[in-house]
Simulated assay, not measured.
Amino acid sequence: MGRYVIRRILQALLTLGIVLFLLHYLMALSVQIRGNPALLFFGGDRTPDPAMLEQVERLYNLDNSCYERVGDPCITPFVERLQDYVQGDLGTTLNGNRDVAQLLSIYIPNTLRLFVFSVITLVAVSMVLGTWAARHRGRFIDHTVRGTTILADSIPVFLILLSYVYIVAVPLTRWARGIWGTESFMGQVFRPNYNPDYPWTTIIIPGIIVGTVGLATMTRLIRASQLENLGSDFVRTARAKGLKPMRITIVHVIRNSMIPIVTGIGFLFAFMLSGAVLTEGVMGIPGMGRMIFQAVQRQEGNLVIVGLTVSAFVVVFVSLIVDLLYAALDPRIRYE
């Protein structure tokens, strides 16, 4: 077990290192082709004094000559960047000279709240629908569940968000506030935008919408996995002993179907990250997706790299947890 864990951790670190280098190289290539982003510090249209420009380049680690050679990977700045990350120095923004670490402390909690409700929605709904369809294989309920989830999955997330914000949210909010009041839970949960005074309440509906990403895929995966276990010998033995169908489903079928389900959750997590960018933009949530999008618009290279690095770390970490759960769910995997 120890060797398995160490091997997976080393693989995760290698993957993260490759991602960091690719992000750094793309940023360096952008600087080499598009020009010096330090000019944004002076407003972009002004022609700064050469001495002041040199000082700003040194401040933001853009003074290396490799940024003048197209295609140069800029290894030295990459090593310096890693050293700064290890020391907890994430740099500052070009516009406003704000500390990046301080910005992350604002944006990361909101994205985490969004993903809490997204994962709960995805797992709970797909588990119920997949189990229901598996227990009624080939019947009307099975076809209805599969058709409904495919239809829901085929609708783009941004269309669901826009429909909710401009059609559903406003009348629901007025109705709820007319009954329970503006400051009540029901008066805030249906708001069409984010309210920092109610960070958990106003993020429930956006989280549920993001949770619909990959719902059809997850439901079909759970259904197929449970159908495979429903025809196995241990399930037939449990039925022969007279166990109740609900106990057979929960204790024997669902438990032995967890490996494909865990795989699906890890696979769909990256797609949910892309859905979070749209959700945070439409709903006005100050999260990581919105931060990265605005940083790209403002040509904040360092902020983009830090944001994508955090996102890559989360994806790699989730993949590592999935690998470790494999070993916990099936001891045979530890020896492969």
Rank of each mutant, 00 (worst) to 15 (best):
5 V>T: 15
6 I>P: 05
8 R>F: 07
9 I>T: 12
15 T>R: 02
20 L>Q: 10
24 H>L: 09
25 Y>V: 15
26 L>H: 04
26 L>T: 08
35 G>R: 00
35 G>H: 01
38 A>H: 10
41 F>W: 03
42 F>C: 06
46 R>Q: 14
49 D>F: 02
50 P>F: 02
51 A>Y: 04
53 L>K: 13
56 V>R: 07
63 D>C: 05
63 D>L: 00
68 E>G: 02
77 P>H: 09
83 Q>S: 08
85 Y>G: 00
88 G>R: 12
88 G>V: 10
88 G>S: 10
89 D>A: 07
90 L>N: 02
105 S>F: 08
105 S>A: 14
106 I>H: 14
109 P>V: 09
113 R>S: 02
115 F>R: 03
124 A>C: 05
126 S>D: 07
128 V>E: 09
128 V>H: 10
137 R>G: 03
142 D>L: 12
144 T>C: 03
144 T>Y: 03
147 G>T: 10
159 L>C: 10
161 L>N: 08
165 V>K: 13
170 V>M: 03
173 T>F: 03
174 R>S: 12
179 I>K: 13
181 G>V: 13
186 M>F: 15
193 N>D: 14
197 D>E: 14
198 Y>S: 03
201 T>E: 13
201 T>G: 01
201 T>L: 11
204 I>W: 06
208 I>K: 11
209 I>T: 07
211 G>N: 10
212 T>H: 09
214 G>Y: 12
215 L>N: 07
216 A>R: 06
218 M>G: 01
227 L>D: 06
228 E>T: 12
239 R>Y: 00
239 R>P: 00
242 G>C: 08
266 G>K: 05
272 M>E: 04
273 L>P: 08
277 V>G: 04
283 M>I: 11
288 M>T: 14
294 Q>L: 10
296 V>T: 12
300 E>K: 01
301 G>K: 00
303 L>M: 11
303 L>N: 02
307 G>M: 07
311 S>H: 01
314 V>I: 15
315 V>L: 15
317 F>W: 07
321 I>E: 00
322 V>C: 03
325 L>E: 04
336 E>I: 08
